[in-house]
Amino acid sequence: MRYFLAGFALLVVLVVSVAGFRGGLSRKPPIEIFPDMDRQAKVRPQTADGFFANGLGSRLPVAGTVARGAPFADTPLNTGREPGTTNYVAAMPVAVSAEMLARGQERYTIHCSPCHGGQGDAKGITTKFGMAVIGNLHDARIVQLADGELFNTITNGKNLMQGYGPNIDIADRWAIIAYVRALQLSRLATLDEVPAELRASLTK
């Protein structure tokens, strides 16, 4: 019995010392005993796949094709330009509403504020880490840009700013532009433009 107990204790210590405790750090992937159901022969997004020569599971669209539902038409909404020309549209081709501005504020905060700052004055967090040239959205030059040109800049980038076309939906890009216009107005508007009943709250 003594030997049995000693052997038993040794076994328990051995198992615990090899297997460790729950939540312990492991660099190796979790063990799956019967992986044939868990891991099926199907391509999941953004995974490698040996079937194709370059090893990518996801295929790029063939040149010149348009995915279903993808924007392709030469309209101001999709390009920010007058159809058939390279001229930027002066005013955004979508109606502005309070919900759209709120959406624009949310998207601006996610995608733009890291560099352009919460107020659009180019004082985002990245300036502390070596981001040198950031456009101040309150510059007269930028205030005077056509809405279509802002759309083009968001979509394709400008100078050191890279394009955000792949990351921000078209409707959201216009919402951001609407919000940027509101930000600009917040510094350019005169007291006379404020509704009479709200003026007192600004001057006290």
Partner: peptide
């Protein structure tokens, strides 16, 4: 709780 938690590749 044991096999997955703590995986840190």
């Amino acid at each position: 709780k044991y096999s997955r938690v703590g995986y840190q590749p």
